[in-house]
Design a binder for these strands. Structure first.
Length: 763
DNA sequence: CTACCAGTCCTTTTT
DNA sequence: GGACTGGTAG
């Protein structure tokens, strides 16, 4: 047994980490605080299990939420072990479900060529369906239907299982059913379906379930707090009483409830799996003391926590710097200033992050950085496989694989234009509906000129399908680009250069994809299950089908130009899991952060607080927190109060860069104080940068706003007979028709019709 | 079919 | 403010 705990793998682990890594094969919950070495524990655990011979790679299943996390885990394992890791199931929930369904497609009632719809595809399929069903899309907006269906699937519910007691829900349920039917007809599955179908498959087939339960002696789950009920069920089905389920998570970092994640799963897990080992990783290796003190104090305001306190032996470090600016623009210019200082101190720009609650906040900041000539990088936005031209190309490839997928068909049947208009499409859809066949198959029944045009398209696909057989994936893609006319189309387009480059990149991606050799065939499992693919570990489908899965499941990088030393801009959500030398946490304002919508949601405020906790713990050395008194939002200037979260931080961890004034609006008072602390001249700079057009001429914004013809003005202190004192945040309309948004001291912001409400100036 | 305009909406996001 | 949608005119 000595050698089990003496492995060089375990060197350098602290005591709880060591304990976690070397736990016996029993259900365990590892509460891993931010920066406590979570990934290290997870990967070392796997490496330790394998290197001590307790399990073979074949018996390990490790699941994550993102491809990035899965890749990192594999890379680290590769560095720790010399054994062949190919048989191991490491991947995202969706990736592993795809693998499972491909291997057992017949049991799952799916064609071997089933395609995966990403959210975009799902939405267009939805729109098509609603049209065909003659549903009023004002009453049932496609996006809303989509999220209804996705929510249901996340809860593991089929249409029949959704509560449709009230009439409104009934229509949604009916659409849900029709949508599922359509998907089944076309041989496509959406993201939620990958999970749900897998769960149903495992539930239904004792043999399959038994096989996998026996195979996977160890299940390891990353970011357990982010699991939804369906994923939880999936894990449960894959585990037997003998399975070593190793769940790693942090309830304080649960920030994805809005997409179905349920922290309660952690409590459920403890109960239902009879967790024998609960280990807390509380020593933080990332941030200095003040930052951790602030994070601990903040999160202590939440209730129902599993309980955890971060500590460090690195010392208190620097205090958190707090800045209050008069406007969002001035906040941005202060950021520029501070970043310049840090750069002057020799800090890399890539070691600085500017975080915000919502994407809309990035615009002003980007403008300021751009004008100042500071390189920056914004996370989020379109990813490679989501680009229109790439999606078009993928649609051709999908039709080659599965011609009956109407979504792909409609996407490219007339792209590039082939003279197939809305009329022809409608006729084709009529034919397809009458005969209960796909659009592709319906082409031969279409008469007249339209029929000829559609058949010409079909024959392009046909010839691609058959003439590229046996070709390497790369050649297939290249042939498709040529025969489809996509390249020629973009050659004639003004902005086509970049698109052609992206299509070229797709060829490269195809070439690189196979080179990676991610699945190597190995001894197939003999399941003795009827219809089961006899190979549940090796190649799953043709190279093309694997490439298409890859394209759907991994949309590619969502960050601009890597490599350059640039300041990182992102939402707090996308900063989770990352760390930086310096973090600028911006927009700490009531209504923005915590977001106003969250106030009315159950547990919404706690989730916002966890988000704040995540944000704080991203910083290693330096944390700046900033807010703006005025902010342009939805085309109007809003007056915001300081975020309540700021008040929850211990004062001794903070250093105010501007005087700390009462968190209350009192007309011109606070603007005066601020003007004194930050003379306008400091912020209004001339000739900021040589890029862009005219150099910016920002003026100090008028805090008081301008007088409205109602006699009220934004920023004005007012009194209401019932609600008491407040400040006008916004005005709309005019005269007695107008309405005002007033932030009341007691009840918070409210909209009041000026013609009705008795509102009077308070001073 | 494209181009333009008005109306609407507006947290967070991975797969 | 601005991205996106749906409608209509050319």
């Amino acid at each position: 047994m000595q050698q089990l705990t003496d492995s060089p793998l375990l060197r350098g682990l602290n005591s709880p980490q060591h304990q976690a890594v070397t736990l016996p094969a029993e259900p365990a919950l590892i509460l891993a605080g931010a920066g406590s070495g979570k990934t290290r524990v997870l990967t070392t655990r796997i490496a330790w299990l394998i290197s001590t011979g307790q399990v073979s790679p074949y018996g390990v299943l490790a699941v994550t939420f993102t491809n990035k996390a899965a890749r990192e885990m594999l890379a680290r394992l590769g560095g720790m072990l010399t054994v062949n890791l190919k048989g191991m199931w490491v991947g995202t929930f969706h990736g592993l479900c795809n693998r499972l369904l491909r291997a057992h497609h017949r049991d799952a009632a799916l064609p071997s060529t089933f395609q995966i719809l990403d959210s975009q595809d799902q939405l267009s399929a939805m729109k098509r369906l609603l049209k065909a069903m003659n549903v009023d899309d004002q009453k049932f907006p496609p996006r809303q239907v989509q999220s209804f269906i996705n929510n249901a699937k996340e809860q593991g519910l089929r249409p029949q299982q959704v509560d449709d007691a009230d009439g409104y829900n009934r229509k949604f349920v009916e659409i849900y059913q029709a949508y599922d039917d359509q998907c089944q007809r076309e041989g496509v599955v959406d993201f939620g379906e990958l999970l749900l179908r897998s769960v149903e498959l495992l539930k239904r087939s004792d043999a399959l379930r038994g096989h996998y339960q026996q195979r996977f002696g160890h299940l390891l789950v990353d970011e357990f707090q982010d699991t939804n009920p369906l994923q939880y069920e999936w894990l449960k089905l894959l585990s037997s009483p003998a399975t070593g389920v190793f769940a790693v998570g942090d309830d304080d970092q649960s920030i994805y409830a809005f997409r179905g994640a349920d922290v309660q799963n952690m409590h459920r897990f403890k109960r239902e799996f009879a967790v024998a080992h609960e280990i807390k990783l509380e020593q933080n290796y990332r941030s200095c003391g003040h930052i951790l003190d602030a994070a601990n104090a903040l999160i202590a305001n939440n209730t129902g926590r599993l309980g955890k306190n971060l500590w460090t032996d690195a010392g208190s470090g620097e205090p958190i710097r707090v800045m209050e600016s008069a406007s969002d623009m001035l906040e941005a210019y202060w950021l520029v200033d501070e970043i310049r200082n840090l750069v002057a101190e020799g800090r890399a720009r890539s070691e600085m992050a500017i975080l915000y609650r919502s994407n809309a906040q990035s615009r002003v900041i980007e403008q300021a950085l751009f004008n100042a000539g500071i390189a920056y990088r914004v996370f989020g936005g379109l990813r490679f496989f989501e680009r229109a031209e790439v999606k078009h190309a993928l649609a051709y490839l999908r039709l080659m694989e599965n011609p009956h997928e109407d979504t792909a068909f409609l996407r490219v049947v007339n792209f590039p234009t082939r003279g197939i208009g809305a009329r022809s499409i409608e006729q084709l859809q009529d034919q397809a509906r009458q005969r209960g066949i796909s659009l592709y198959a319906a082409a031969e029944y279409l008469e007249g000129k339209a029929g000829g045009a559609v058949r010409a398209f079909v024959s392009v696909i046909e010839s691609l399908r058959f003439e590229t057989q046996g070709l390497a994936l790369k050649e297939m893609v290249a042939a498709m680009l040529d025969r489809s006319g996509l390249i020629r189309h973009y050659e004639t387009e003004k902005e086509g250069r970049e698109r052609i480059e992206n299509l070229q990149e797709l060829v490269n991606a195809a070439a690189a994809f196979l080179a990676e050799e991610r699945f190597s065939p190995e001894a197939p499992a003999n399941l003795g299950v009827s219809g089961a693919n006899d190979d549940d570990t090796g190649l799953i489908g043709s190279p093309l089908s694997m490439f298409l899965s890859h394209a759907s499941l991994e949309a590619g990088d969502n960050q601009a130009s890597e490599g350059q030393d640039a300041v990182q801009l992102m939402t707090i959500h996308s900063a989770k899991g990352l760390e930086f030398y310096a973090v600028f946490l911006t927009g700490l304002e009531e209504g923005l952060f915590p977001h106003e919508n969250s106030i009315s949601e159950p547990d919404g405020l706690s989730e916002e607080r966890r988000l704040m906790y995540v944000a704080i713990t991203r910083a290693r050395q330096r944390l700046y927190i900033s807010m703006a008194q005025t902010r342009m939002l939805h085309g109007q200037t809003r007056y915001n109060l300081r975020s309540r979260f700021l008040e929850e931080l211990p004062q001794e961890t903070l250093r105010w860069l501007t005087p700390r004034v009462d968190n209350r609006w009192s007309g011109a008072g606070s603007s005066g104080a601020l003007a004194e602390a930050s003379p306008a001249g400091r912020w209004v700079r001339q000739g900021m940068g040589d890029r862009g057009s005219a150099s910016p001429s920002f003026q100090k914004p008028a805090i008081a706003g301008h007088t409205h013809d109602s006699g009220f003005y934004v920023g004005q202190a007012v009194r209401h007979s019932r609600f008491g004192d407040g400040v006008i945040l916004a005005l709309e309309g005019s005269g007695s028709e107008g309405r005002a948004q007033v932030n009341f001291k007691r009840d918070g912001p409210k909209w009041l019709a000026l013609g009705v409400a008795k509102l009077e100036a308070a001073d």
